[in-house]
C-alpha cells in the first residue's frame, strides 16, 4: 500500500491559490526530493501535509497509510507517523527542549498502548541521539530553539525526528544555513532513518543535500504543480542547467 497518495491537491493561503493540482505517490522505503524555484509552493505543500491552519485545501485528497490525512488533527497526523522538519523552526522560550522531546515521545508511546518512558531510559535514548547529531547535552535544557543558530535549529529538528521515528519524514529546506560539516551530520542523521517501512520527502531548492541523501525520485514543483518527475539524475541536471529549461519545457 502506498505511504502517501496526493491527488489533484489545490490549496490557498489568504484566498490566494498556491497549490494548483498536485499528484504524488510515495511508497514505503522511498526517498523523494521535491525541488523548485523559490515561491513555487514547496513549503506550502509541506505545511498543508502537516495540517497548518489557514492553509486551506480547496480541492483534491491526501491519503496517508490509506487514511484521509486532511481529516486528521495536527497532533493526530504526528501520532500517525507524519513529521515535518520545519524550514523555519519555531522558538518557544520557557519550554525546555527536553520537555518537548519527552512529551512527543510519550504521546507516541501512549498511542501504541505503551506505558510512559522511564526517566533514566529516556535520558539514555536522548543522549545517544544527541551524539548522532553532534549536539551538546546543554541543548536539552534550553528553551525549544530559543536563541539557537540557524544550523542548530536544523539539527534540533532532526534530533526530534530521531526520537519520534516517523513513518513519513518531510524535510523542508533542511540544508539551508548549514556549513559542510553540519550538512554531513544532518544528512547522516537522516540517512540513519532510512528504512524499508519509512519514506522520506526532501523539499529543497538546491541539490546539494541530495549528494548526501540520495533520492529515488525527483520532482520539480513550479507555480503549485509538479511539472516534471525523474530519478536522481534530474537533480544533477537541474544543478547544471538551472530551472529555466524545465519551466520552458513544461510551458511548451
Amino acid at each position: 500500500m502506498s505511504m502517501l497518495s496526493i491527488k489533484d491537491l489545490h490549496a490557498e493561503v489568504d484566498g490566494k491559490p498556491i497549490l494548483k493540482g498536485i499528484d504524488l505517490e510515495i511508497n514505503p522505503g522511498e526517498v523523494h526530493a521535491i525541488m523548485g524555484p523559490n515561491g513555487s509552493g514547496k513549503s506550502t505543500l509541506s505545511q498543508v501535509l502537516a495540517g497548518r491552519e489557514g492553509f486551506e485545501v480547496t480541492r483534491g485528497e491526501v491519503r496517508f497509510g490509506g487514511e484521509d490525512l486532511l481529516d486528521m488533527d495536527i497532533d493526530e497526523r504526528a501520532l500517525a507517523g507524519l513529521m515535518l522538519a520545519f524550514q523555519y523552526p519555531v522558538e518557544i522560550p520557557g519550554v525546555k527542549n527536553v520537555y518537548l522531546l519527552k512529551a512527543a515521545y510519550n504521546a507516541l508511546r501512549e498511542k501504541r498502548g505503551e506505558p510512559e518512558v522511564d526517566a533514566f531510559e529516556f535520558l539514555q535514548l536522548v543522549r545517544e541521539k544527541l551524539r548522532i547529531m553532534d549536539m551538546d547535552e546543554s541543548f536539552l535544557h534550553r528553551g525549544v530553539n530559543e536563541g539557537f543558530s540557524g544550523g542548530e535549529k536544523k539539527r534540533n529538528e532532526i534530533l526530534q525526528m530521531l526520537i519520534m521515528e516517523p513513518r513519513l519524514a518531510i524535510l523542508d529546506e533542511t540544508d539551508s544555513g548549514l556549513d559542510i560539516d553540519a550538512l554531513k551530520v544532518v544528512s547522516d542523521g537522516v540517512n540513519s532513518l532510512r528504512a524499508e517501512d519509512r519514506s522520506i520527502v526532501m523539499v529543497t531548492h538546491y541539490q546539494r543535500l541530495l549528494n548526501y541523501i540520495e533520492p529515488d525520485f525527483v520532482h520539480v514543483l513550479s507555480d503549485g504543480r509538479i511539472i516534471k518527475s525523474g530519478d536522481k539524475s534530474l537533480a544533477l541536471e537541474l544543478e547544471e542547467r538551472g530551472y529555466q529549461w524545465v519551466l520552458e519545457e513544461a510551458a511548451a
Binding site: G51, D73, I74, D75, A78, M83, V90, I92, V95, A107
Partner: peptide
C-alpha cells in the same frame, strides 16, 4: 506558531 509547532510534535492541543 508555537501551538502549531508543538502539535506537529504529537502534543495534543
Amino acid at each position: 506558531d508555537a501551538l502549531y509547532y508543538l502539535q506537529t510534535r504529537a502534543i495534543n492541543p
